[in-house]
Measured scan of single mutants.
Amino acid sequence: ELKKVVALYDYMPMNANDLQLRKGDEYFILEESNLPWWRARDKNGQEGYIPSNYVTEAE
């Protein structure tokens, strides 16, 4: 089971490997080892790295 998180803030990608975050949207965490960058997937199936301090665990 993948960990689900909710974006606390918008995040615009800095490079091609990053994933855009939209405040309030849910994302699945694929990999937590790259702290403070986590690999995530959005609801459309896009994958990339996000800043872990921009998300919180979903209820």
Rank of each mutant, 00 (worst) to 15 (best):
K3W: 03
A58C: 09
T56C: 10
N44E: 12
E1I: 06
E57V: 14
F28H: 08
K43D: 07
Q20V: 07
E1K: 10
I50S: 00
Y11P: 01
R22D: 05
I29P: 02
L35R: 13
E31F: 13
I29E: 02
Y9N: 15
P51V: 02
Q46I: 15
L2K: 07
D25R: 08
Y27R: 01
N53G: 10
A58Y: 12
W37S: 12
P36T: 07
P51M: 06
P13V: 04
Y9D: 13
G24F: 05
L2D: 14
L19M: 06
N34F: 15
K43N: 12
A16S: 10
G48W: 00
A40N: 00
W37L: 12
P36L: 07
S52W: 10
P36E: 11
E26D: 09
P13F: 00
A40S: 03
V55I: 09
K4C: 04
N44Y: 07
V55W: 01
E59G: 15
N34W: 10
I29M: 04
L30K: 08
Q20P: 10
Y54M: 15
M14V: 14
E59F: 08
G45P: 00
I50P: 00
I29L: 12
L8I: 10
Y49R: 15
D42L: 01
Y11D: 01
E1T: 03
E32Y: 07
F28A: 09
G24D: 07
G48K: 01
Y54V: 04
N15S: 15
R39T: 06
L35E: 11
D25C: 15
D18P: 02
N53Y: 04
A7W: 00
L2R: 08
L8Q: 07
P13W: 01
D42G: 06
Y49L: 13
D18E: 15
D18G: 10
N17S: 13
V55S: 01
Y54S: 14
G24R: 02
Y54N: 03
L35T: 09
A16D: 15
L35M: 11
N44A: 10
D42R: 02
D25E: 14
L19C: 02
K43G: 13
L19H: 01
Y11G: 01
G45T: 02
E57G: 13
S33E: 10
Y49D: 10
L19Q: 01
L35H: 13
L2V: 06
Y27N: 02
V6P: 01
N34R: 13
P36K: 14
M14W: 06
K23W: 02
Y11M: 07
L2N: 14
I29K: 03
P13R: 05
M12P: 12
L19K: 01
L21Q: 01
N15V: 15
L19T: 01
M12C: 15
V6F: 08
Y27W: 00
L19A: 01
S52G: 11
I50G: 00
M12A: 14
L21S: 01
E59V: 14
L21V: 08
K23Y: 05
L35C: 07
W38C: 11
R22M: 09
G48H: 00
G24Q: 03
N15A: 08
M12S: 13
K3E: 03
P51S: 04
L2T: 05
N15M: 11
N15G: 15
P36C: 08
Y11I: 03
R41Y: 03
E47A: 07
S52E: 08
D25L: 09
D25Q: 12
I50Q: 00
D25V: 11
M14L: 11
Q20L: 09
E26G: 04
E31V: 06
A58F: 12
